[in-house]
Computed example of a mutant assay.
Amino acid sequence: MNLRDLTPWHHGKAGAGSTPAISELHREVDRVFDDFWRGFGGPSLFGGNGSAMAFDVRVDTSEDDKAYHVTAELPGMSEKDVEVTFADNMLTISGEKKEEKEVKEENVHRRERSFGSFRRSFTLPSEVDEAKIAATFKDGVMTIDLPKSKTAQKKAKKITISRGK
Rank of each mutant, 00 (worst) to 15 (best):
residue 90 M to K: 15
residue 9 W to I: 00
residue 63 E to S: 11
residue 1 M to G: 10
residue 13 K to P: 01
residue 114 S to G: 13
residue 53 M to S: 11
residue 95 G to F: 02
residue 21 A to L: 15
residue 3 L to C: 05
residue 56 D to M: 02
residue 112 E to A: 15
residue 69 H to F: 04
residue 120 R to G: 02
residue 143 T to E: 14
residue 146 L to E: 03
residue 22 I to T: 15
residue 83 E to I: 04
residue 10 H to S: 11
residue 93 I to G: 06
residue 73 E to H: 14
residue 137 F to E: 06
residue 33 F to M: 14
residue 104 K to N: 14
residue 52 A to P: 06
residue 110 R to Y: 09
residue 63 E to D: 02
residue 25 L to N: 07
residue 125 P to E: 03
residue 9 W to L: 01
residue 109 H to E: 14
residue 69 H to W: 04
residue 110 R to M: 12
residue 141 V to E: 10
residue 137 F to K: 09
residue 153 Q to K: 12
residue 75 P to S: 07
residue 147 P to Y: 08
residue 142 M to P: 03
residue 126 S to N: 09
residue 39 G to E: 01
residue 44 S to A: 10
residue 46 F to H: 15
residue 68 Y to G: 00
residue 8 P to G: 08
residue 106 E to Y: 14
residue 127 E to K: 01
residue 14 A to E: 11
residue 105 E to P: 03
residue 102 E to N: 13
residue 7 T to I: 15
residue 77 M to C: 10
residue 59 V to W: 07
residue 59 V to P: 08
residue 37 W to F: 12
residue 136 T to Y: 05
residue 152 A to T: 06
residue 114 S to N: 14
residue 115 F to N: 07
residue 3 L to F: 11
residue 25 L to D: 11
residue 78 S to C: 03
residue 19 T to K: 07
residue 36 F to H: 12
residue 12 G to A: 03
residue 138 K to M: 00
residue 154 K to E: 10
residue 136 T to D: 13
residue 28 E to M: 12
residue 163 R to K: 13
residue 114 S to I: 07
residue 86 F to T: 10
residue 135 A to V: 04
residue 36 F to Y: 13
residue 128 V to K: 01
residue 18 S to K: 09
residue 107 N to C: 03
residue 65 D to P: 00
residue 97 K to Y: 05
residue 125 P to G: 04
residue 5 D to C: 04
residue 147 P to V: 09
residue 87 A to I: 08
residue 111 R to C: 10
residue 86 F to H: 09
residue 131 A to Y: 07
residue 42 G to S: 09
residue 165 K to N: 11
residue 160 T to Q: 11
residue 33 F to N: 15
residue 106 E to Q: 13
residue 116 G to P: 08
residue 98 K to A: 11
residue 120 R to M: 06
residue 7 T to H: 06
residue 84 V to C: 07
residue 2 N to T: 11
residue 83 E to P: 01
residue 113 R to N: 06
residue 32 V to R: 15
residue 39 G to I: 00
residue 65 D to M: 00
residue 23 S to K: 13
residue 99 E to P: 02
residue 56 D to K: 05
residue 78 S to D: 09
residue 8 P to T: 10
residue 84 V to P: 01
residue 18 S to I: 07
residue 9 W to K: 01
residue 165 K to Y: 05
residue 61 T to L: 02
residue 116 G to W: 01
residue 158 K to C: 04
residue 66 K to D: 13
residue 65 D to K: 05
residue 134 A to W: 05
residue 155 K to S: 13
residue 13 K to I: 00
residue 35 D to A: 12
residue 91 L to H: 05
residue 6 L to T: 08
residue 62 S to T: 03
residue 18 S to M: 08
residue 29 V to P: 04
residue 58 R to I: 10
residue 79 E to N: 13
residue 32 V to C: 12
residue 80 K to D: 11
residue 43 P to W: 04
residue 100 E to R: 14
residue 153 Q to D: 00
residue 127 E to L: 02
residue 147 P to S: 11
residue 111 R to V: 15
residue 113 R to Q: 10
residue 9 W to A: 04
residue 158 K to V: 12
residue 100 E to Q: 11
residue 146 L to R: 04
residue 73 E to Y: 10
residue 100 E to M: 09
residue 36 F to S: 09
residue 117 S to K: 05
residue 7 T to K: 07
residue 16 A to D: 08
residue 21 A to H: 13
residue 65 D to Q: 05
residue 1 M to W: 00
residue 113 R to D: 02
residue 159 I to V: 15
residue 126 S to W: 01
residue 140 G to W: 05
residue 106 E to S: 14
residue 27 R to M: 14
residue 9 W to F: 06
residue 33 F to W: 14
residue 104 K to W: 05
residue 144 I to G: 03
